[in-house]
Design a protein around this nucleic acid. Structure first.
Length: 652
RNA sequence: GCGCCCGUAGCUCAGCUGGAUAGAGCAGCGGACUUCUAAUCCGCAGGUCAAAGGUUCGAAUCCUUUCGGGCGUACCA
């Protein structure tokens, strides 16, 4: 039983003589936020006093008098309005550490009721290079999978790749019209990406070009409306003010739209070759869409191209996954569900859940204006249809108890419609959850792009991180009198530090927050970073090397842990609470709960390291005790970081 | 129009179902390497938690309003 659970059960019996409803009260026991108040605090006296019409401090005293915790805590202190402050006995902490020291799971018990959770994450479109946006989903999803597995659940990680969408028609069209055969032979994926970009650019050109006159007209009109509003007297009431502001924004938006449209047009027109291609392919957007339709309809030639493109695209994705050490149990892309889509639509129709609206087949959910479109006017299915088929498959074929979607929060409306539709469809028994995350922003407050407006490729991000890490590794090792690392080891450390840094930079934010991308922060190796913890790990390994200790034998004996100074006690107490961090992550799928525990713990270790020498411990018993703490700390770091997909190195 | 989200230190962000004097990191300033790796440690400074009301013994957290910003909103995924 964990410390908190033990405390709660003791409080439950103490409280039972005062009230029948102890459940909400024992939830008010938690760890103290300030160590000067002790290790834990119970805040239940105040509400209970209110309930019983007595003074909170008297109630607190009464609770304490019924409380039987002398075996694990020192005498409770009542403070402030009626807080009960608890300080654990050192011998109790020491006992607890001894137990955990012999436990591979560091005191975390496997769940008693394992669930089968399908985690849907990463989900890039093939033939489009992965970018920072995919980093969040991949890294968060991977951490969730690892943590669920550690807790004892059955996990199926599934990469629901976009291999059946509009972009394939564009690539097919590009392949047929603009292929550079030589480049294609050298680097198939790069050439496909170029073709995708080109077709996209050309269809954009035409779309935007034809929209420009309308946009200018709209601008004129909106400007006129704005002038109209401005010409009157200054707006007195709030409504008029608001309207004026909205109008200003509308004008600005239109102006912005024209600006970017003109830029797109100019880019094509500045390039004679592009211009010629644009002129020769005036209907490119429609024709590309047609290729997609043909593919979906089973057209042999297009299917053959799809079969040709896909393996190379997958290989490119897998290369990135391998560098990130992200693994999938399944990679069932959208194409996999294609045969099931017609059945989904007919089933929903037969159950009168889906109806025709303006020629499209839709599910309408009460309280939502927007329909959930499962079949378009032209007969094509949408990603909504695919998502429904996917849930059906995961429930019926994979026997999932729970499905977790690690997807951008901008799609929250889609998921709420999807999940609601599934409930109505009769799939209420599978728990679906949208684990949303915020956008990676640039310095301008807009979604992060390079200066040229492209997405930042994930491959080059990793390269940059590793090469920066290498510079730091070199600097540090060169500074030593005797360099500790061979060139190969340096490369290995740079790899671990670089990729760990990227992952950590993402994971340590609350996933729902947008955050500003910054190379220096993303790749920083000081402060609240993976490097800080990796370094702590390497320092512990250094102690074992220096003292020539066999880690296998530490903590196996009955040797006790001695807590002789505040740094030791604080570290030991922290190390008993790994299970809270795991619980906190899984409560709402927030890996930042684990990063913050790891950072706190590492901070306490660093203080311990600075103040409590292991090598020069005052006695062999104390040295042994400190070795137990070091070993436990090292395992906490490697285990905890591993749950985040971050590796450690013995020397760095 | 409708719906969802956000506003916390110079910057980037934590802050769990309401708990005591709101926390980190970075940047800044000042200290600590003959002693297990200074990728570190110790200290200082930095805040009207956007604003105003309300609920409560207690509010950054819950409710209402205002201001500022973002996102979504019928055939892209």
């Amino acid at each position: 039983m964990s410390i908190l659970q033990t405390l709660k059960s003791r409080f439950a019996s103490a409280l039972s003589s005062l009230t029948d409803d102890t459940a909400p009260l024992i939830e008010m026991i938690r760890s103290s936020q300030d160590p000067k108040f002790g290790d834990f605090q119970a805040n239940c006296a105040m509400p209970l006093a209110k309930q019983l019409g007595k003074s909170p401090r008297d109630i607190a005293a009464e609770i304490v008098s019924h409380l039987d915790i002398s075996d694990l805590c020192e005498t409770p202190k009542i403070a402030g309005p009626g807080f009960i402050n608890l300080r654990l006995r050192d011998d109790w902490i020491a006992d607890r550490i001894s137990q955990i020291a012999g436990d591979d799971r560091l005191g975390v018990v496997s769940v008693s009721n394992p669930k089968h959770v399908v985690v849907d994450f990463s989900s890039p479109n093939v033939a489009k290079p992965m970018h920072v946006g995919h980093l969040r989903s991949s890294v968060i999803g991977d951490a969730i999978c690892r943590t669920l597995r550690f807790a004892g659940h059955k996990v199926t990680s599934d990469n629901h790749i976009g291999d059946w969408g509009t972009q394939f028609g564009m690539i097919i069209y590009g392949y047929r019209n603009f292929l550079n055969a030589a480049d294609y032979r050298v680097d198939q994926v790069a050439e496909l990406a170029r073709l995708y970009k080109l077709v996209n650019q050309l269809s954009d050109y035409h779309a935007v070009k034809s929209k420009l006159p309308e946009l200018s007209k709209q601008l004129q009109q909106r400007q006129a409306e704005l002038d109209d509003l401005n010409s009157g007297t200054a707006p007195a009431d709030k409504k008029a003010k608001k309207k004026l502001k909205a109008q200003r924004k509308a004008v600005e938006d239109t102006r912005g739209a024209i600006g970017s449209a003109e830029a797109k047009v100019a880019e094509v027109e500045a390039d004679a070759a592009l211009m010629q291609q644009a002129n020769e392919h005036g209907d490119i957007a429609r024709l590309a869409r047609q290729e997609t339709s043909k593919l979906h309809a089973g057209d042999e030639a297009n299917q053959k191209l799809w079969d040709e493109f896909l393996p190379a695209c997958m290989a490119a994705l897998n290369q990135v996954y391998s560098r990130l050490d992200v693994q999938f149990d399944l990679t069932l892309g959208e194409s996999y569900y294609n045969p099931m889509l017609a059945g989904v639509v007919s089933d929903l129709k037969s159950k009168s859940l889906a109806t025709d609206s303006n020629g499209a087949t839709c599910v309408f959910i009460d309280g939502n204006e927007a329909p959930f479109i499962i079949q378009k006017t032209d007969g094509a299915y949408t990603y909504a249809t695919t998502d429904l088929a996917t849930i059906q498959y995961r429930r019926n074929e994979l026997n999932a108890d729970e499905i977790v979607y690690v997807v951008d929060k901008r799609q929250s409306e889609h998921f709420s419609l999807l999940f609601r539709t599934c409930e109505l469809w009769g799939f209420a028994d599978v728990k679906c959850q949208h684990v949303s995350f915020g956008t990676v922003m640039g310095n301008d407050g807009k979604p992060f792009k390079t200066r040229s407006g492209d997405n930042v490729g994930l491959g080059s991000l990793i390269d940059e991180a590793v090469s920066r890490a290498r510079r730091v590794v070199d600097e540090n090792d060169d500074r030593r009198e005797q360099p500790a690392l061979s060139p190969n080891e340096r490369a290995r450390v740079a790899q671990i530090v670089g990729t760990g840094g990227i992952k950590y930079a993402d994971l340590h934010h609350n996933r729902d927050s947008d955050y500003v991308f910054d190379w220096d922060k993303m790749l920083a190796t000081t402060g609240d970073t993976a490097t800080y913890m990796q370094y702590a790990y390497a320092r512990i390994c250094g102690i074992f090397r220096e003292l020539d200790v066999d880690r296998q034998n530490i903590g196996n004996g009955r040797s006790t842990v001695l807590l002789t100074c505040p740094e030791e006690r604080s570290l030991a107490l922290q190390l008993t609470q790994f299970d809270y961090a795991i619980d906190a992550v899984l409560a709402d799928y927030r890996p930042n709960q684990l990063t913050s525990w790891l950072f706190d713990t590492s901070g306490k270790f660093s203080a311990f390291y600075a103040h409590c020498s292991v090598k020069n411990a005052e006695s062999p018993e104390l040295q042994n005790s400190r070795l137990i703490l070091c070993d436990l700390m090292a395992r906490a770091l490697s285990t905890g970081l591993a749950l985040l997909g971050i590796e450690t190195a013995d020397v760095m």
